[in-house]
Each structure stands twice: as structure tokens, then as C-alpha cells.
Amino acid sequence: MELKMETRQLNLFYGGFQALRDVNLQIKPREITAIIGPSGCGKSTLLRCLNRMNELIRNVRTTGQILLDGRDIHDQAMELTSLRRRVGMVFQRPNPFPLSVFDNVAYGPRVHGTTDGAKLQAIVENALRATDLWNELKDRRNSPALALSPEQQQRLCISRLVAVEPEVLLMDEPCSALDPIATARVEELMRELAHSYAIVIVTHNMQQAARVSSETVFMLLGDLVEAGRTARIFENPRDKRTEEYISGRYG
């Protein structure tokens, strides 16, 4: 199977500190890949390499390759804005803009040049339907997004991405600010979205990784220790460190 994204010998340094060591990550299309590992293992850093968000921090240096559909994302011909449209990101805490529900979802399309009102209406409706928000919010499209519940806010942030038709969704502990019921609903949404997108989720919650993902990657201290089918990783880890982490001996 063709890989959607791939890193080759990826190293990342924060000043003198090396946060990623020779990471070879493979992301398959239309599947959920979970990156697990204890705090500080580099899983969020790795995620933020995939849409070049790390470059916003000063003194960050990377070596190695990151490929999207076989093309290097650091290539001159790959525009940063179009990379970030194709590889969207959901953050740990829901971060809708202080605008209306409609303007939040229409934000991405507007930024990328869609100004036609009817077209925007249609895009917003589709994006809200994709995250099951349409029925809840169709009459509140003009109310402020910050007045929504945290779960609705997080789903709105996902709608905001869906509206720009991305190819890969990066999710950085998307449920850590949500209660268990909201978490279950967002996970359900992720499984639905995985029919259309490649999803990479960083989570400190092993149960969540086991529930939603089909591929799991275990990281420790900047190393990618083991990657494989989720069931295999959890039932039959090959590396001793993976086994120790999964059985809860540290982390």
C-alpha cells in the first residue's frame, strides 16, 4: 500500500537538545495511527513536524526527510500554506476563534481564497455535517463559538479543518480537555473521519489508542521504539520497553 506520509531518519534538535532520533514513521491513508509514549518522549514534537509547526519555535533544527505522497514537504515547490491546508491539526485544548460558528468554519476556505457567499454556506454546512454538529448548531451559526461546550468546540475545530478538505488530520491529545462521554463521541467521530482521511493521533491514554487506532507507534526518549498493527502491539509487543510501557510499569 502507498504511504500517505513518511519520515526518514528524522532528527530534531531544540538548541543543543535532541528531541527526535532517526525517526522512521509511516502513515497509511484512511487509517488511524496512534503515537503513544510517556510525557516528553517526543510524540507531540513528531506530530508538529508533519505540518512544519515546529518551525514557529526558535532554535529548532531538523535533519532527515518528511514525505507527503512521496514528495518532501521541505521542498521549495511545496508551499507552506498549502502544506498546512493539506495536513491539518487539532489541538489539545479546543481553540475556536473568537468569532461566530459560521466564521470559524468559513475561516479556512476564506484564507485560501473562497469568497463566494453561497459556496461558503455549502462548505460550512458540509463541514458541520461531517462532525455531526449541523443539527445541533444550524440555528446558532451566528452565535459566538466560545459559548459552545468544550466537546462542541473541539468538534467545531475539526469541522474547521474538514472545510479546507485536508488529506491528513493531526490530533494532539484531542480529548484531554473532555469528559469521558464527550471523549467517546469524539472517538466515534474519528472512526467515521478515518473513512476519508489519514489520521494521526498523539495520546497519553493507551486505552484510547487501543480503541480507535489501527496502527500504533510507541516512542521513548525521542526514539521510535516499535510500530505495527495496534492489536499486535498491545497483545504481542516485540520490544521489551514497549511491553513494559503497555503493562503500566512506567509512563
Binding site: N95, L99, Y107
Partner: peptide, 25 residues
């Protein structure tokens, strides 16, 4: 900063982010 990051991560330029998010916030 999360507003700013959210906008940049959607592929907005700095100026678009300033105009459409930061000034409004």
C-alpha cells in the same frame, strides 16, 4: 497563543492571522 496557532495551522499567513483573528480578538 492558541488562536494564533490555530490560524497558522490552517495555512493562514501571518497577515491573514493578524487581520482576521488577532485584531478581532
Amino acid at each position: 497563543r492558541s488562536f494564533w496557532e490555530g490560524s497558522i495551522a490552517l495555512g493562514a499567513t501571518r497577515w491573514q492571522t493578524t487581520r482576521m483573528v488577532m485584531l478581532k480578538a
